[in-house]
Each structure stands twice: as structure tokens, then as C-alpha cells.
Design a protein around this nucleic acid. Structure first.
Lengths: 105, 105
DNA sequence: GCAAAGTATGATTATATGTTCATGGAAACG
DNA sequence: CGTTTCCATGAACATATAATCATACTTTGC
């Protein structure tokens, strides 16, 4: 971040946009739960996630799609299951940070 | 977080809610910018913030109210200015985490 | 008291988000 | 094949969020 007195630089503004985007993508209890799970297990199927979080299939799938479209999750097929995993390192870093915070997850 | 195979404990679910709430409150470029500023300066007036971020008065004020109502900012009057500051330690911790991340702000 | 500076606020509008429900598609298994 | 399992998807709806504009409020200094 620049220390100048004036307004934000273009780069700073973009950084804020970027971080806000990631935070917004994750700022939901179910999505946060999913991401947190995927920090522990490299990849999980939809039904695994539903079971572990006690969430419904359709809703869970919607949120997974959401995060996939926003580029923070990856998917691959395994038989009739779909295996989801964390994609971007940035996101993992943010989540790790949050987990290491005093406010630990 | 519990390691059990079943669904989430009540406490875990509440923790996810809590963190998601804070993230959501902050997950906006302008609000993120404000919080980031208030990490550097203990307290700032609305016009200070507007100037430093290049944001409009009314919009900035709305976002400040937003964060104040959600309990992450405090205000006090100083003459005709209103001085805003970060309120909860939790929030500071989360923001500090984000700032220390590789994805550093 | 009056004007100006610094903020707050409500109305309005547009858009985004979250949830549910019903249904459809793909792989596996008999 | 037919069926079951696992998952995706779209419609529909309710609600939340963001931005803009105009205006009102409070303090200060004259």
C-alpha cells in the first residue's frame, strides 16, 4: 500500500477489489465450511461434504458451482462422484490465515 | 473444529457463522479500504477517509454506518467531525492476518 | 442568528444473493 | 436395458446489497 496522502493508486484499488472478491466468495457459512473441509482433505465428493456439514445436496451443489465459477475450486469426475478441491493458492493462504488467527476456526 | 465423521457441532456451526459474518461485513472494496486505513490510523474522520480513498461522502458514510451497526467500528464526535475507529479485536486480527498473507494488501 | 463545514439519513432503483423444489443427466450395477 | 446413485441445473421467489440523490442535522465562527 502506498503511503501518499492523495487517493489510492490504481494498483492498490485493484488489490482491494481482488481481496474483496475472494472474501465475498467465501463469506458464507456453508462456503466457509466447504473451504475449511477442503483444507483438511485434498479432495471430497459432494456427498462427503453434505454428510460432513449436514447440508442439503442441491444447495451444496449450488455453492460448489458458485465457487468453481469464481475460480477458487477445481472439480474432476471419479466414477459417479465429483471430486472438489481448492484451486488457487491465494485462497488457501487467506483461509490458512483465518485459521491461524486467534479467532481460529 | 471437531474431527468426528458426522455433522458439525453447534459450536462449530456458530463459529462459521461468526467468521462469515465478519468476512461479509468487510468483503467490499470500499469497506476493505476503510478498515485497512483504520489499521494504520487509530481514528479518522469521514472526510479524511473520503480524501484518502477518493470516495464520495454519502456512500462512504453509508458504509461506515453499515460497519458501525454491525459492531466492527466505533465513532465519537470531535467538533463537527466524526472520528471512526476499529472496535473489535477479532476484526483487527482477521485484517492483520490478511495483511500478512502472501496476498498482502 | 446566519452561513458554512462536516455528516447522516431516507427514498429510490438496480442488481445480486440465497434458498427451495422439481427435474434432468451421467455413470454403475444388476 | 432398467434402476439406482450421485450430482447439476433452471425456475421461481424472497431478501439483501449497492449506489445515487436530495435533504436534513449539528457544530462552529462570524
Amino acid at each position: 500500500m502506498e503511503a501518499k496522502s492523495g487517493t489510492l493508486s490504481q494498483a492498490d484499488a485493484e488489490k482491494l477489489e481482488r481481496i474483496a472478491f475472494i472474501l465475498k466468495t467465501v463469506a458464507h457459512p456453508l462456503r466457509l465450511g466447504i473451504v475449511h473441509l477442503l483444507e483438511q482433505y485434498p479432495e471430497l465428493s459432494v456427498s462427503d461434504i453434505c454428510e460432513k456439514l449436514g447440508s442439503e445436496q442441491s444447495l451444496t451443489s449450488h455453492h460448489l458451482q458458485n465457487m468453481r465459477l469464481k475460480g477458487i475450486l477445481a472439480v474432476k469426475r471419479d466414477g459417479r462422484s465429483m471430486l472438489y478441491s481448492l484451486k488457487e493458492r491465494d485462497v488457501s493462504l487467506i483461509i490458512e490465515c483465518l485459521e491461524n488467527c486467534q479467532c481460529n476456526m
